[in-house]
Design a protein around this nucleic acid. Structure first.
Lengths: 117, 117
DNA sequence: GATGATACTGTATGACACACACTATTGTCA
DNA sequence: TGACAATAGTGTGTGTCATACAGTATCATC
């Protein structure tokens, strides 16, 4: 593999890794928002737990989930910086349960596939 | 939740399940193509193993992976129907290893997140 | 020997989530 | 004063997927 091919390979790898991570961000966010938390702290916590998320990805995601009524938010303005706290709604809790089950199913199937030679 | 809201919820659920599955198809395909196999049989086998894939999704995927030099193909025309057999290239094997590691890392992180209350 | 199902491969279109690169404000500390 | 951190947001492009569609050749069934 020459340099050119190596760069192609690396680009494809990044792309495929990206696709693999896809969707897990939502599940991660929902699982964390069983307790109220604000966006910036979510980025930090998920990052610390191995789930890197760009702020530019997370904020639109939170707003989307709120629009879907899976989250609700309140502004906390008493501190030095205004923070928008999000937390799961009742629907959000149900969704978290369903997606967790789906995730476990997918994981089970993938393990079956990957185990064989 | 009224009917309208229920439909919204179901739509969102389908969408999120879709995103969760995303990327796993590639990993599944690569893992199966350690041995040569043709498209139609892949659809069957993956389906039997719990990874539903539409033909209209799989064929473009196979061609894409071949264009990325992760797969190579040969036409088998001796049988009654022409079949295009795909198999991993050397690069494809490396990629499979890297993506498998990534998958395990993601899984580990998600389990950590989901385990807590 | 016609009719329909099945095996087999392919293409076009559209939706949507993500990364990335921005903008913007306010507080803090050197 | 000036830089960095905290905090929230938007806009654009890219890529994968589902869905729907097109096409051919074989096999079974009647």
């Amino acid at each position: 593999m020459n340099d050119q091919e190596q760069r192609e390979f690396d680009k494809n790898l990044e792309n495929l890794r990206l696709e693999l991570r896809r969707g897990t961000l939502v599940l991660g966010v929902l699982s964390r928002l069983q307790r109220p938390q604000y966006g910036y702290s979510l980025v930090e916590e998920l990052g610390a737990r191995g789930i890197a998320a760009e702020a530019g990805t997370l904020y639109p995601l939170l707003r989307r989930l709120e629009a879907q009524q899976l989250l609700e938010s309140v502004w906390e303005t008493s501190g030095p910086k205004p923070r928008k706290y999000y937390v799961l709604t009742a629907q959000g809790k149900v969704m978290l349960g369903l997606l967790t089950a789906e995730w476990q199913e997918i994981t089970k199937n993938m393990i079956g596939l990957l185990r064989e030679e």
